[in-house]
């Protein structure tokens, strides 16, 4: 019997060959490229023949004035996003949960989920148009109230908040899905019992509804810690400009400019390696926590 089962696993190995090979080529081979971070890399010489410089790229970065600010910007934007994406979707899901009219509920969901499926190219094109200081409809509205126009995408003070709020616009609706699923899974008899005990609507919300979704909130909050160095490359890249580098330049855009525009491959890889290692610690840590406290298992 045992022999039969072992023979039975041969087709399983065969099925896995293509995926194992492709992941090896595109996810494991680049690991060797990390060596570039310790080299004065010249593409014509390749990874093996470029000059080894040890930690020189890292010390160069520490002394570069923009590096620290970029890290601060990344953390500032990503932490604001992490908090906003816990608070806003939870509140929105709770409000939507009180709606009894099915058609209304469905319409609201249809509208707020839509931006999630559009690329940052499309949404940036729209934002650039509506936020334009001269022709944008937002500034036309401000002017009609007698206010001064604001150059939202070109102003160092406004830029991080525009990034967080426009990301909310794109994703908050989609982020309510798991909370709404958790809300429908709450046992209705709990509400009946609460009513029997004389609990009104507010008490039901605080003593039945909220505790019902707290595990999901805790789980998603934990998993979102993995994004601590992800301020959103796709979004920032398409909305920023040299005028807002001071508050808007993030690690990923910094890596892009160093590597793809300035051809400082060694230095760019060094920043990338720093980001990968720190992110790895946070992602692995968040999964470990979720596994320990919420019994969350990926596989």
């Amino acid at each position: 019997m045992n022999k039969l089962l072992n023979r039975g696993s041969v087709p399983l190995h065969l099925m896995l060959i293509p995926a194992v090979a492709l992941v090896f080529i595109f996810n494991y081979i680049p690991l060797f490229g990390i060596v570039i971070a310790f080299e004065k890399y010249i593409p014509a010489r390749g990874v093996f023949h470029s000059k080894w410089v040890g930690f020189q790229n890292f010390t160069y970065l520490i002394h570069l004035p923009g590096t620290f600010q970029t890290l601060v910007n990344t953390l500032y934007i990503s932490l604001m996003k992490i908090i906003a994406f816990i608070v806003v979707p939870v509140i929105f899901a709770l409000l939507l949960n009180e709606v009894r009219n099915k058609l209304f509920k469905r319409s609201v969901q249809t509208i707020v989920y839509l931006p999630h499926f559009m690329s940052w190219i499309i949404l940036s094109g729209i934002l650039i148009d509506i936020l334009s200081p001269s022709d944008g409809i937002v500034n036309m509205l401000l002017k009609s109230f007698g206010l001064k126009p604001i150059f939202f995408l070109g102003d160092v003070h406004w830029f991080p908040y525009v990034i967080v709020s426009s990301d909310l616009w794109k994703e908050f609706g989609f982020n309510t899905i798991l909370y709404l699923a958790a809300l429908t899974a709450i046992n209705p008899t709990l509400y009946e019992a609460a009513k029997m005990d004389g609990a009104g609507r507010w008490r039901q919300t605080f003593h039945v509804t909220l505790p019902g979704i707290v595990p999901v909130i805790v789980l998603l909050a934990t998993l979102s810690m993995g994004n601590v160095l992800n301020a959103g490359f796709d979004q920032v890249f398409n909305l920023y400009s040299p005028a807002v580098y001071q508050s808007g330049d993030i690690l990923d855009t910094f890596i892009y400019r160093l590597g793809m525009l300035d051809a400082q491959y060694g230095v760019a890889t060094a920043v990338g390696l720093f980001k990968s290692v720190v992110s790895f610690i946070f992602i692995a840590g968040s999964y470990a926590l979720a596994r320990k406290f919420a019994d969350y298992r990926v596989f």
Partner: peptide, 9 residues
């Protein structure tokens, strides 16, 4: 692995 090693591969 990051942008540059991915691109180089």
């Amino acid at each position: 692995t990051g942008l540059i090693p991915w691109y180089m591969t």
